[in-house]
């Protein structure tokens, strides 16, 4: 029986893989694990391909019962993790036997733990991905978050189990009080007054309760738009522009003082001015910043953004070598 039984779904746990790339033009966001680094590390620990589907939890982890021998690993947010009630380390491969129960206590840092299981979560692919896109109910496990009683299919084992394999300290993420997010300014930053753009970059923003896989709404500063004559095709709000494609990670400020960072499940285009885009590597940090957390934006150029992405992949390659995967 290649299944894992969901005894509790936690707050919001979904099946995610490396994402549903290639369909942005038809309005389909990529979904996928929001913290790519933690997601890939979890897969490495259990001997899966980097892109194998795993579980992404939010704030409250799930409770999972295994029905066959597997290797599991929990990465991402710092949490109290247990097997059969006994504390177990994170960022470490763990052997589980039929009947063993993986559970979570409260998080002490970060927002999203990842659970990888050897063999991967074998839900059907939709448009070449197992990622859940809950807004439209596609992909993942029935297009939704996990609930008590669900039976998740697991894939066949591809690598021999390795118990006790552990990610060294220097490869663990940090969870600072104020999270620095590198931002490429544009595409519509011209809509902000010069002073307002400066203050946007100098403000420490607080993450509101409206922060999920679609977007993060922030609070903490004020925004002033440049006065203009409403262009043909744009809405009447000062934040409106003629519709454009929204970069993933882009920051818009629809009608007011609350910027929204658009994330993996966001709408792909629309008519709000995007004043900047969080570099892709730093979306990992966004994923681990929860409601009540603080972020600041640091302006960088596109070359720096591309380098940040390469640096993350280099770090994962080094980790792979250390783990012998």
């Amino acid at each position: 029986m290649n299944e894992v039984l969901v005894r509790s779904g936690g707050l919001y746990t979904t099946v995610q893989d490396a994402g549903r790339d290639g369909y942005y033009a038809i309005g389909m966001p990529p979904s996928g694990a929001m913290d790519r680094y933690s997601f890939v590390a979890a897969n490495m620990l259990v001997g899966n391909p980097d892109s194998a589907a795993a579980l992404e939890a939010t704030y409250l982890g799930p409770e999972l019962e295994f029905t066959d021998p597997r290797t599991v690993a929990v990465t991402g947010a710092r949490a109290r993790v247990t097997v059969n009630g006994d504390p177990v380390p994170q960022w470490t491969s763990l052997r589980v036997a039929p009947g063993d129960v993986l559970g979570f206590g409260a998080l002490s840092a970060g927002a999203r733990p990842y659970v990888a299981v050897s063999g991967g979560i074998d839900v059907p692919e939709y448009l070449n991905s197992r990622s859940t896109y809950k807004l439209t109910g596609i992909g993942g496990f029935e297009g939704r978050a996990l609930a008590e009683g669900d039976r998740l299919p697991l894939g066949g084992l591809q690598a021999p189990p390795r118990d006790g394999l552990s990610v060294p300290e220097e490869f663990l993420p940090e969870f600072p009080e104020v999270v620095q997010l590198r931002l490429v300014v544009g595409l519509c930053s011209y809509r902000l007054t010069e002073r307002s753009l400066e203050s946007f970059l100098e403000t420490t923003w607080k993450v509101t309760k409206d922060a999920d896989r679609i977007g993060y709404r922030l609070r903490g500063g004020t925004i002033e738009f440049v006065e203009r004559e409403q262009p043909f095709g744009a809405g009447s709000d000062p934040a409106n522009v003629v519709d454009l494609g929204y970069p993933i990670g882009s920051v818009q400020i629809p009608g007011g003082n609350e910027p929204i960072i658009l994330l993996n499940d966001a709408v792909t285009g629309g008519g709000y001015a995007t004043v900047g885009t969080v570099v892709s590597a730093d979306r990992d940090r966004v994923a681990q910043t929860g409601t009540g957390g603080h972020v600041r934006f640091t302006p960088v150029d596109v070359d720096t953004a591309v380098q940040a992405r390469l640096d993350r992949e280099t770090r994962l390659s080094k980790l792979r070598a250390v783990l012998g995967r």
Binding site: L11, Y12, T58, Y59, K209, D210, A211, D212, T291
Partner: peptide
Amino acid sequence: IEVMKTYN
């Protein structure tokens, strides 16, 4: 506690 558009 309200978070992510749900009341928990």
